[in-house]
Amino acid sequence: MTKSGGLIFFAGLLMTCSVCWGEQASASKERQLNQLQRQIKQVDADIGGLKREKERLLRQLQALEVQYGEVARTVKILQDNIGRQRKALQDIGRKMALTQKAIDGQKGELESQIRSAHAMGGRERLKVILNQQDPALSSRIMVYYDYLNKARLRKLEAVEKNYRALKQLEQQKRQETEALNTALRQRQREQSELQKVRSERETLLVQMERQYSTKKSQLERLKSNEKELQQLIAALQRRSSDTIFQGTPDKPFAQLKGRLPWPLKGRMVKKFGSRRSESRWDGVLINAKEGADIHAVTRGRVVYADWLRGYGLLTIIDHGKGYMTLYAFNQSLYKAEGDWVEAGEVIASVGSSGGRSHPALYFGIRRKGKPVDPLRWCRKIHKDRVG
C-alpha cells in the first residue's frame, strides 16, 4: 500500500468510527429522552391518582360527617323525649300520691260517718219514726238521718271516682315506663352507631392528614375551599330577593349594627383578619362544647343548609338587603333550606365537621357577598368570651 493510499484508508476509518460514535450518542440521548418521558407520565399518573384519592377521601368525609350529624340529631331528639317522659312519670307519680291521699282522707271521713251511724243504732231511728209526741222533732231528725245517708253515698262515689282515676294513672305510668325503656334502648343503639361513625371519621382524618402533610397542599386546599364558599355566596346573592322581607315587623339588619347577639356562648379563639395558614380568617372562630345549641342572631330565611368542602355542615341565613350570616363546622343542622327562623331560634349544634379535630363554630357575616367583622356588628365581648 502506498503512503497516500494508507492516509486515505485511515481517513475513511476515522469517518466510519465518527459516524458510529454519533449514532451511539444519538441512540443514548433518545433512550434518555424516552426514559424521561416515561417518568413524566408516571409522575402525571401519580399526581392524577393522588388527586383522585383526595377527592375520594373528601367524599368519604362528607358522607361520614352527614351521617354523624343525622345520628347525633337523632340522639338529641331521643334525649329530649327521654327527658319529657321522665318528667311525665314524675308528674304521674305526684298525681298518684295526691289521689291516694284523697282516697285515704275520704275513707277516714266515711269510716267516721259509719261509726256515728252505728253509735246511733238502727233502733234509734225506729223509735223516732214511732214517736208521735213531737212530730216536728221527729221530722227534723228524719231529715238529719237522710242527710247522713246522702253524705255517705257522696263519699262512696268520690272514693270510687278516685280509685278509677288511680287505676288510670297506674295504666298511664306503665305505658310511659314502657315508652321510656324503649327510648333508652334506642338511644343506646344510636350512641353505639355514633361512636362507630366517630371512629371511622378519626381514621379517615389520619389518612387525609398524610395526604395534606405539606404547607403547600394545606394552603392550596384552604384557598380552594375559600373560593368555593365565595362562589356559593355569589350564587346565593344573585338569587336573593328583598321582596320577601318587606312588611316584616323586625328592624332591618343594617340597623342592628353593634347590637346583634352572638349565636352561642364560648371563647373566641380566632378573630376576623387573624392569620389562617397563609391566608386570613374572614369570620370568627368560637370554641364551644360539642352539641351545644347555635342560635340565629336575628330573623331571616335559610338559603343553604348542607355540607360544603372545608366548612362541613353549613347553614347560611339571608336577612335581606344583601346581608347574610354563616354558621359552619356544625355537628347537626336543625333547619332546612327555605325555613324561616326567628332571632334566638336554635338552628344547629356545635361540631367539628369539615375535617376539624376540635369542636368550634365558624361565624361570619356577609354584606353583598363581602366579609365584614362580626365584632363590629355583635355585642361587646369581655376577655374573648362571647354570649
Rank of each mutant, 00 (worst) to 15 (best):
V66I: 13
Q67K: 15
Q67P: 05
Q67V: 04
Y68R: 12
Y68T: 09
G69H: 03
G69Y: 02
E70W: 06
E70G: 08
E70D: 12
V71A: 01
A72N: 00
T74H: 09
V75S: 06
V75D: 01
K76D: 04
K76M: 05
I77S: 07
I77N: 00
I77A: 10
L78E: 11
L78G: 07
L78H: 01
L78W: 04
Q79G: 09
D80F: 13
R84D: 13
R84W: 04
Q85H: 00
R86H: 14
R86M: 06
R86L: 06
R86E: 12
A88C: 12
A88D: 14
A88G: 07
D91L: 14
I92R: 07
K95S: 02
K95R: 13
K95L: 08
M96N: 02
A97R: 10
T99R: 03
T99W: 04
T99F: 01
Q100N: 11
Q100K: 15
I103P: 03
I103C: 03
I103V: 08
D104E: 15
D104N: 14
Q106G: 09
Q106A: 12
Q106R: 11
K107F: 07
K107I: 09
G108I: 11
E109W: 10
E109H: 14
L110M: 11
E111W: 10
S112Y: 08
S112D: 13
Q113C: 07
I114V: 01
I114N: 01
R115D: 07
R115P: 01
R115W: 01
R115F: 01
A117C: 00
A117N: 09
H118N: 09
H118P: 05
A119F: 09
A119S: 08
M120F: 07
M120C: 02
G121W: 02
G121H: 00
G122W: 09
G122V: 13
E124M: 13
E124G: 05
E124S: 14
E124T: 10
R125A: 13
R125D: 07
L126H: 01
V128S: 07
V128D: 02
I129F: 05
I129S: 02
I129K: 01
L130H: 10
N131A: 05
N131R: 04
N131L: 06
Q132M: 14
Q132L: 13
Q133K: 09
Q133W: 07
Q133S: 06
D134Y: 12
D134S: 14
D134I: 03
D134E: 14
P135E: 03
P135M: 03
P135S: 04
P135R: 02
A136C: 01
A136F: 00
L137S: 13
S138T: 07
S139P: 03
R140H: 09
R140K: 05
I141Q: 04
I141P: 05
Y145A: 01
D146R: 11
D146Y: 10
Y147K: 08
L148W: 11
N149V: 00
N149S: 04
